[in-house]
């Protein structure tokens, strides 16, 4: 065997021997076998005499490294045994220690934040408005005149003061923003809304909406589709989310549309979650009706744009698979800690 072959053999063999060593005694034997006074490494040292003086220093260095590698391996292995031996001081790193969960935010808040993040990345600002509204802002200015069937769609809570009510949607904030600022507008409006519904699995007298408004010289229905489809993609985190727009009716938009997304459970084939339709409605939208602009003194010859509105609880239910709207307001810790 040449020097090189011997060297390679030792390098491979000592690791195997250390691995197999089952007791402290075994480890000591391995140490003696390789780096003891007459161990394998020293044997090679003794043979270095046959090399030329030029080759010798390189080999010396190489063997010293091997020696220190073996020493380290032996010591590491010995330490494992000594830890096992000190019975009084067994440390259990799997114990929980002083742990408490970092409290979550409510899923409605979480969804609201996501919506705000997405729309602010699309250039929207955030505006807020009062929850106690005048019937002018909640209805009349939004082209929902008194004694019009559209007003019946909003079962409204009234307050004792004449003309005051709890807003039935976030749309009145659109009106307030347009009244107090000049176009262009590019805002979303998150907030609570109220309808006179009895609490059940899909109704709550208090719920959350996000309203949006984008108005400029040239904003059109194609932009409406683009922005809202982009929102759906970002919100449901997948480019495979399909959207479709259907004609609908809202008094404050014309043309009006509803946006559906492909059912994420059946991929559009039809299942019980989507009532066999393959699609789930997630928001209403449309081009701002000229009547609304007129009420807000916005010149319809110069400005046009779209508005939209979505129910936050509904989006949360779709995204997280929550089956019952009541969960949101019970605040059961077993519910909250899941978000």
């Amino acid at each position: 065997m040449s020097l090189n072959e011997k060297y390679e053999k030792i390098s491979a063999a000592y690791l195997q021997d250390i691995k197999e060593a089952g007791t402290l005694q075994d480890v000591e034997e391995v140490r003696v076998k390789y780096i003891g006074r007459s161990g394998e490494v020293n044997k090679i040292f003794k043979e270095l005499g046959i090399l030329s003086p030029e080759e010798r220093p390189a080999w010396g260095k190489k063997l010293n490294i091997l020696k220190s590698d073996i020493t380290k391996s032996v010591e590491d292995k010995k330490e494992q045994f000594s830890q096992k031996d000190e019975k009084e001081d067994i440390f259990d790193p799997t114990m929980p220690g002083n742990y408490s969960r970092f409290p979550s935010i409510h899923p409605v808040t979480g969804i609201l934040r996501e919506i705000k993040d997405i729309f602010s990345s699309l250039g929207f600002g955030v505006a807020y408005g009062p929850e106690i509204e005048s019937s002018y802002h909640n209805f009349t200015a939004l082209n929902i005149p008194e004694d019009h069937v559209a007003r019946e769609m909003h079962d409204t809570f009234y307050l004792n003061q004449e003309d005051k009510l709890l807003r039935t949607h976030t749309s009145p904030v659109q009106v307030r923003v347009m009244e107090n600022n000049d176009p262009p507008y590019n805002i979303i409006v998150p907030g609570k809304c109220y309808r006179r519904d009895t609490i059940d699995a899909s109704h709550s007298p208090v719920f959350h909406q996000v309203e949006g408004l984008m108005v400029d010289k040239n904003i059109n229905f194609a932009d409406l589709k683009g922005v809202l489809a982009e929102f759906a993609k970002l919100f449901f985190k997948g480019s495979d989310v399909k959207t479709r727009f259907r004609p609908s009716y809202f008094p404050f938009t014309e043309p009006s549309a509803e946006m559906d997304i492909s059912c994420r459970i059946c991929q559009g084939k039809g299942c019980s979650s989507c009532s066999q339709k393959g699609w789930l409605e997630i928001l209403g939208a449309g081009m701002v009706d000229p009547e609304v602009f007129k009420h807000c003194n916005v010149d319809t010859e110069k400005w046009q744009g779209f508005a939209f509105g979505m129910g936050v609880e509904r989006l949360a239910m779709l995204k997280y698979g929550i089956s019952d709207m009541r969960f949101f307001y019970l605040n059961d810790i077993r519910f909250l800690e899941q978000f």
Binding site: G125, N186, A222, K225, G226, A229, E230, F245
Partner: peptide
């Protein structure tokens, strides 16, 4: 509605009042 091709509006910056 499906035949109306969707697009993204040009992004405008600077809505300072919010």
């Amino acid at each position: 509605y499906d035949r109306i091709e969707s697009k993204l509006p040009e992004l405008k910056v600077g809505i300072g009042y919010f």
